[in-house]
């Protein structure tokens, strides 16, 4: 097992994934480091990558004219960043910025899409995991939508 494969297997997102698939997708991944303050992508960028965060912290931000940047969510160790690579129009919808030194595993989305086409069972496995992430984000959004801590009077 290569170092990269080991890092992949250790990440919660790939928990209990068939080692054969780990090997397969490792070919699409590389280790990356972002410095604090560095933008990883900007709103509107083509979405051709996603990341598994190993350490550090990243903020997803949206810029509202007149209000400035607003943090939508922060992501850290164990999280996955980016799912817009999987669905058209394959564009980033937010800005992503490293808040501190952040280490991640970066995936080439074209490469992953190719592997999934070759091996539909891998695609199914991967999309199940992404569906869970999307579901969690949606739930978190809904919780904030109802403003649970507001005074409501």
């Amino acid at each position: 097992m290569t170092t990269l494969e080991r890092l992949l297997a250790e990440h919660p997102f790939f928990k209990e994934l068939d080692p054969r698939y780990i090997q397969l997708i490792a070919g699409c991944a590389q280790e990356v480091v972002f410095k604090a303050g560095e933008f990883i992508f900007r709103e509107g960028d083509p979405s051709n990558k996603f990341w598994l965060i190993r350490s550090g912290k990243i903020s997803l931000e949206i810029f509202a004219p007149g209000r400035g940047p607003i943090i939508i969510e922060t992501l850290g160790e164990g999280d996955v960043m980016g799912w817009s690579w999987a669905v058209p129009p394959y564009r980033k919808q937010y800005d992503a910025r490293a808040l501190e030194l952040t280490r991640a595993l970066e995936f080439d989305a074209m490469c992953i899409r190719g592997k999934c086409d070759e091996e539909p069972k891998l695609g199914y496995e991967l999309f199940k995991r992404f569906a869970q992430i999307i579901g969690q984000r949606l739930q978190a959004t809904r919780l904030r939508l109802i403003d649970i801590y507001g005074s409501h009077s």
Binding site: P12, K57, S59, E61, G68, P69, I70, I71, I72, E73, T74, G76, E77, G78, R97, L99, Q136, Q139, A140, L143, R144, D147, Y149
Partner: peptide, 22 residues
């Protein structure tokens, strides 16, 4: 916190449940 501006908050943004897996 549920919402913050980058210049006033360096911590986590998200609902409290997102802290539990970590």
């Amino acid at each position: 916190v549920d919402a913050a501006k980058p210049d006033e908050w360096r911590g986590n943004v998200g609902v409290v449940t997102t802290l539990i897996p970590r």
